[in-house]
Write a protein that binds this DNA or RNA. Sequence first.
DNA 1: CCCATATTGATACTATATCTCAATAAGGAA
DNA 2: TTCCTTATTGAGATATAGTATCAATATGGG
Lengths: 135, 135
Amino acid sequence: MLDTLGEQGYRSTSPRKAVTQAIAAKQGHFTAEQLRQQLPGVGRATIYRSLKLLVDSGALCRVLLEDGNLHYQLSHQGHHHHLLCVECGSSQDLLGCDIEDLLRQVSTAHRFQLSGHWLEVYGRCYDCLSEAATG
Amino acid sequence: MLDTLGEQGYRSTSPRKAVTQAIAAKQGHFTAEQLRQQLPGVGRATIYRSLKLLVDSGALCRVLLEDGNLHYQLSHQGHHHHLLCVECGSSQDLLGCDIEDLLRQVSTAHRFQLSGHWLEVYGRCYDCLSEAATG
DNA sequence: CCCATATTGATACTATATCTCAATAAGGAA
DNA sequence: TTCCTTATTGAGATATAGTATCAATATGGG
């Protein structure tokens, strides 16, 4: 992550190192506030600034939970979407989904020039389904 | 809108009348704060409470703008999506989109039990495209 | 080693929304 | 019509998420 920022001309500072290391060690999504509590030595503004930089650089993606809360998560690829489990909160990336094609088609039909979209998918992951069935 | 609330056992109060009338007269989406400024006689908490009731009852839908701001809009149908113009802010409903089918398929492939989703589509509407071309 | 400047952090501030709780209003029952 | 239970309201405090300001500091190229 720091490399990515470096390539984009940003300086490698110790607050940024702390932030990127903390994020790299995380699994799953988290809020800005959780990150802040985990890094009491880093100022609030710096936390938010770093998150914004990382989102813009593509290293991090935003996740909108069903309750409206905004979380962040390491991004393992380019533009993609999430399957969010409403039970355990886990998230898997949605793969092999050609929603872009579909949206392009319907946009054209509405004489609308598509420039972007936001999609989140909610439901129950396999683990939680299994537990519900056996437990 | 009041009827819908009435059917669900909610009382018909004058603040609720004021809110539903103001919303019915609006075209396009609006923020809770805009509604509040329009109805200075109604308390802030009541505005938000009414909005939540109306969203839950299905009369109102939430609209997430590209800048992250949450707006509200009269809902003319059941679950649907919006084509949001990033230029003029207008919104048209996305019709004839079988995204539910697509999502059901890919969810199954991920062994994920779909329960809901959130989709917003951003771009430029026909009017703004025309203006850009001729203007 | 120096210096221009990117970056930081303390703090104030904004926006959005919820919570608390006493006062009030709605509407069914008598 | 009046009474009474209870839903609802509103003022204000509180919570949450994020941005703006700006002097002090740290970075990294020269």
